Simulated assay, not measured.
Amino acid sequence: MTMTAAPVGPQRYAERYLATLEAPTQARQDIALALEAWGLPQLVDVAKQVVTELVANAVEHTDAATVSASITRTGTESARIVVTDTSRTRPSPGTPAPDDENGRGLLLVDALAHDWGSELVHGGKRVWAELRADGPQ
């Protein structure tokens, strides 16, 4: 009789942060550490940029006291980032003027992620981004 290991759920890391200016930096560091621990260094740079933008948007554009960020390994070279907050307003990419210093975060997420979106959930919303080692498509 051959024994095999029981299937294990996906690798996942989640944390809640106070909605302060330090939250994007903390989330970026935590997400990078999780990806490194899972052997996915090829996703670290993109994940750091995406989670920074999503958490910064939640901190800057909502009145949430806390923001949650999670990352789940979805394949051998892919992961999903989810940021949740208590706002019911879904984000949408703007069209900033060329000299605007703000307003490009979701455009960057759109350019870097394979796919992204948002959905209303009980108590707020979640914004997610799918990352793949082969880049956006």
Rank of each mutant, 00 (worst) to 15 (best):
M3T: 01
T4E: 02
P7S: 04
P10V: 01
Q11A: 11
E15Y: 12
E15P: 03
L18C: 09
P24H: 11
P24V: 06
T25F: 09
A27M: 11
I31W: 10
A32L: 11
A37R: 15
W38A: 14
W38R: 13
W38H: 12
W38T: 11
G39Y: 12
G39P: 14
G39K: 15
Q42M: 15
Q42N: 14
Q42R: 15
L43T: 14
V46E: 12
A47I: 13
A47H: 11
K48P: 06
V51D: 08
V51R: 06
V51A: 14
T52R: 08
V59W: 07
T62S: 14
T62D: 06
A64D: 13
T66L: 07
T72M: 03
T72L: 08
T72G: 02
R73W: 01
T74I: 04
T76D: 13
T76P: 08
E77F: 03
A79G: 10
A79C: 11
V82D: 08
T84I: 01
S87W: 05
S87I: 04
T89L: 09
R90Y: 01
G94D: 03
G94K: 03
T95P: 00
N102F: 04
G103L: 01
R104K: 03
V109F: 06
A111W: 03
A111F: 07
L112M: 09
H114N: 12
W116V: 04
W116M: 02
S118L: 05
V121K: 04
G123D: 05
K125W: 10
R132F: 07
A133E: 13
D134K: 07
G135L: 08
Q137R: 14
